[in-house]
Design a protein around this nucleic acid. Structure first.
Lengths: 158, 158
DNA sequence: CGGTATCCCGTGTGATACTG
DNA sequence: CAGTATCACACGGGATACCG
């Protein structure tokens, strides 16, 4: 890592800060991970995470407001209406963050021999790893990365 | 995203929880991002992030304890010894998380037309995006991802 | 400049009780 | 079961003062 030139970034616009304000607490990413495991119901989250109901309730409400979860009604036995929490496309896109964090945690925080979470291909069961790719399909190494300030273009996704 | 079978994960060993306990606050990832911009000194962090000295001091100490930063002495003008904070290999590996978060934030939190942080190739200036790759080099789509529990093998890193 | 120590305060969290 | 309301508490963060 050689030093890069200083950049006049207005840090108030930093996407990282915005993202951290939504996800940067004890529970948000854990709940989202449960969702990637396939769980969708209040009680599943509660049981699996040992989180208190009030905190879970507030957190889910917040994540729904941020369009990460959609609260979808469904019926169990024609008696009562229930809700389940499904990841929106915006929420599903968090797989990038989740996998990066799990990969880093596995590489550096988990002792060998201990059970942990693996990221596997569903069809050939091979472990998957994060890579960087440009629009031409070429892969890039860490040393090739540079952060820069630019103005987001209109054609890009919301 | 179809529902996956439930998994008997002992959530106390979750790498995500461990990672979140280190990085999941208002400042850790912001400081690390500054480091990826090339900044290494206490005062640079302080000026760029508008963080109070005491908080920055504590945070840096914590990140050094977690082997994310190394505190390296150097001399400015032969007078006083100073320290700078360099990312360790473990810290550099956080590029995966950082870029995932920035990419998600850019895609979903930053309005079009606004200045933001871009991730570029240093040599051809092309924007980079995260992808998933297996050991054979094959790239995988989101729909192909599956999370599973496994025991970390001895030959793997740390 | 590069921190550390102290104080104050807001917020996140868990426990508990309550509601439909 | 699926939440909401309330309370008490610990912790993180900012401001300030101080130190080498």
């Amino acid at each position: 890592m050689k030093k890069q030139t200083a950049l006049p970034l207005d840090r108030d616009y930093c996407p990282l800060l915005k993202a951290a304000s939504i996800l940067g607490d004890r529970w948000a990413l854990m709940i989202i991970r449960e969702s990637f495991f396939g769980y969708r119901r209040f009680d599943d989250f509660k049981q699996n995470l040992h989180i208190s109901k009030s905190v879970l309730s507030n957190k889910l409400k917040l994540l729904v407001e941020h369009d990460i979860f959609a609260k979808i009604p469904y019926q169990t036995d024609k008696q009562r209406e229930r809700f389940e929490y499904q990841l929106t496309p915006k929420g599903q896109d968090l797989y990038k963050v989740l996998i990066g964090l799990i990969e880093w945690g596995n590489d550096h925080l988990v002792p060998a021999g201990q059970k942990t979470v693996a990221i596997l291909s569903a069809h050939n069961k091979k472990p998957l790893h994060t890579r960087l790719q440009d629009a031409t399909g070429q892969l890039h190494e860490l040393a090739d990365i540079r952060l820069a300030i630019h103005r987001k273009e209109e054609k890009e996704k919301d």
